[in-house]
Amino acid sequence: MASYSDDLTLAGRLADTADAITTARFRARDLEVRSKPDRTPVTDADTAVEDAVRELLAAERPSDAVAGEERGGSSWSAGRTWVLDPIDGTKNFLRGGPVWATLIALVEDGTPVVGMVSAPLLGRRWWASLGEGAWLRDSAGERRISVSGVSSLGDAYLSTTHLNSWAEHHSRDAYLALNDACWETRAFGDFWHHCLVAEGAIDLAAEAIVNPWDVAPMQVLVTEAGGRFSDLSGAVRFDGGSALSSNGHLHDPALAILQRS
């Protein structure tokens, strides 16, 4: 198996670069904000992060492609492509909430092989590379992480997203059925609930609609932590438009509910 240790080291440097920009612009009085065509907000911090990361990648990996949320980019189906979300959770960033992160993934021939998630205001960074496990650094130090051992939906802790997004993009009934089947439901949202699945703090995270850059690092992070990641059809892909991450034991039972409702 190929080693991605150098790429993972570079991903850490990219995250450091991003954190320096985002923390400096967080709660800035002169933060510039505009709306994209889909009505989601973008700030000058988003574009500054992506530009800085692209500049570093151009110097360090000139033959690799780059695809980012704000500046676009080429397909990731062949070759090596870095997939970037400069600030995942921009609405939280704008409101002064701490739950936002920079997401970085290296995708090789369509498969994420390196993932990096850095949430500086939470004091947490998660990372993984193919065959090397999943890791977390927080106030307690650095440690390898793994998913939970919960084996029944009736004992499961689920995180999901806004009901209206399920009604529009998948099924309101599926949302309610999965909620009813689980022990406890919260909405941690964005990057965080997939990272919590990888940590074993929760057991399932489901989203009716996502963009590829929202979950590219999550696929390798969750699977390297011993879990499973797919879209809501069950296809193992980060670009299917939806996402389900689990501890593995609960994946098929959750898919069965989501697909029949």
Results as ranks from 00 to 15, higher is better:
6 D>I: 06
6 D>Q: 15
8 L>V: 06
8 L>G: 04
10 L>M: 09
20 A>C: 10
28 A>E: 09
28 A>N: 07
29 R>H: 12
31 L>W: 02
32 E>I: 09
34 R>Q: 11
37 P>C: 12
43 T>C: 00
44 D>A: 03
56 L>A: 13
57 L>N: 08
65 A>K: 13
66 V>P: 00
67 A>R: 14
68 G>Y: 03
73 G>R: 10
78 A>L: 06
80 R>Y: 05
81 T>K: 14
85 D>N: 10
95 R>P: 04
100 W>A: 08
105 A>I: 00
107 V>S: 09
108 E>G: 00
116 M>A: 09
120 P>W: 10
121 L>K: 10
122 L>V: 00
127 W>N: 10
138 D>H: 13
148 S>M: 07
148 S>N: 06
150 V>K: 03
151 S>E: 13
158 L>C: 02
160 T>A: 12
164 N>T: 03
165 S>F: 11
168 E>M: 15
174 A>I: 02
175 Y>C: 13
182 C>L: 06
188 F>M: 09
189 G>P: 06
194 H>N: 14
199 E>Y: 11
202 I>A: 04
205 A>H: 03
213 W>P: 01
215 V>S: 08
216 A>N: 05
223 T>D: 05
224 E>M: 12
228 R>G: 06
228 R>L: 14
229 F>Q: 09
232 L>T: 03
233 S>K: 14
233 S>F: 07
233 S>N: 13
237 R>C: 05
239 D>W: 11
242 S>W: 06
250 L>C: 10
253 P>C: 15
257 I>L: 15
